[in-house]
Nucleic acid binder design. Structure first.
Length: 287
DNA sequence: CATACGTGGGT
DNA sequence: TACCCAAGTAT
């Protein structure tokens, strides 16, 4: 038995029944879920995903809306530029692909907000294509099971990608299943903090466990600060715009953040990003 | 290659 | 409480 075999067997039994994994989700459902899941946990995505697909069942439906409605519907998922990019991706799909989410990696990769991971994930999960799908979960599983290390490096290395490619089953549908299964294993068992090795189907084969689960050596991973940052300020300002259904006066917006210099900087960046627009006079709204 | 970019739940 | 971190992308 190999890590791949036991993981596929485990997945068949333990996979979560997530809405974007159902056949009726389609490629559009998969694409929407991938955008929302970029750096955001499953349980927070769930309700927003459901509402999103009910409102915009096809890419063309979203493309026909203003980008501001996408930002509003995005709610508090975080990183609202993703909502803008998903809206732009929907427009590109409507224009260039006849309203159908493309199946080719290169075409997916060319869409706004679709990077290497998302292009591989959509091609794999929605269309059963054979791609190395390297998200944080898969990377951790590979680091442990095959490289004997607690954590993968900060960015994907050539060696790491080569390993992932070498592992890919020949049969595309099986490769796609392995992508989903290894991701699920990383999410549920081979977790970052307290891995549940006792419940892991690959425990006997795991290089990291065989080595005695050595601690990560090297520089500690960079933590992300948030409190008091420009990011938090942007979030506070945007929350006001999301809740308002008409342009708001600058005064109202400024009441959301005390530091004048910081909120000025934040508002300017929101305008630059296209997350906010200045309307008549001194008023602001979603685009 | 490092950094900016939201938010909230778990420990 | 403070810190960690969650299906990344663009610059």
């Amino acid at each position: 038995m190999s890590v791949i075999e036991v993981t596929l067997g485990w997945y068949a039994e333990h996979r979560r029944d997530l809405p974007w994994r159902r056949p009726e989700a389609g490629a559009w459902g998969v694409l929407v879920s991938e955008f929302m899941l970029q750096q955001t946990p499953v349980n927070r995505v769930l309700p927003v995903y459901q509402a999103w697909l009910e409102r915009w069942p096809k890419p063309g439906d979203l493309a026909a809306e203003s980008s501001g409605e996408a930002v509003r519907a995005w709610g508090r998922l975080g990183y609202p530029r993703r909502a803008l990019r998903l809206h732009a991706a929907a427009a590109a799909i409507a224009e260039r692909h006849g309203g159908v989410v493309p199946a080719e990696y290169e075409e997916l990769r060319a869409l706004p907000g679709v990077g290497d991971y998302t292009a591989a994930a959509v091609a794999s999960f929605a269309y059963g294509r054979r791609h190395a799908v390297l998200d944080t979960n898969v990377r951790r599983v590979l680091a442990r099971a095959y490289s004997g290390e607690q954590y993968p490096a900060t960015s994907v290395s050539a060696a790491e990608r080569a390993l992932a490619v070498s592992l890919l089953p020949e049969e595309p549908s099986r490769a796609a299943a392995w992508a989903a299964a290894s991701m699920e294993l990383g999410a549920l068992i081979c977790t970052a903090k307290n891995p549940r090795c006792a419940a892991c189907p690959a425990a006997e084969l795991c290089a990291w466990r065989k080595a005695g689960r050595p601690e990560h050596t090297g520089p500690a991973r960079k933590g992300q600060s948030y409190a008091g940052t420009d990011r938090q300020c942007r979030g506070a300002l945007l929350a006001v715009l999301r809740q308002a259904h008409a342009p708001v006066e600058a005064d109202v917006l400024f009441a959301a953040w005390a530091d004048e210099a910081q909120r000025g900087r934040a508002l300017r960046s929101l305008l630059e990003d296209g997350l906010a627009v200045r309307t008549a006079g001194n008023q602001y709204s979603l685009p």
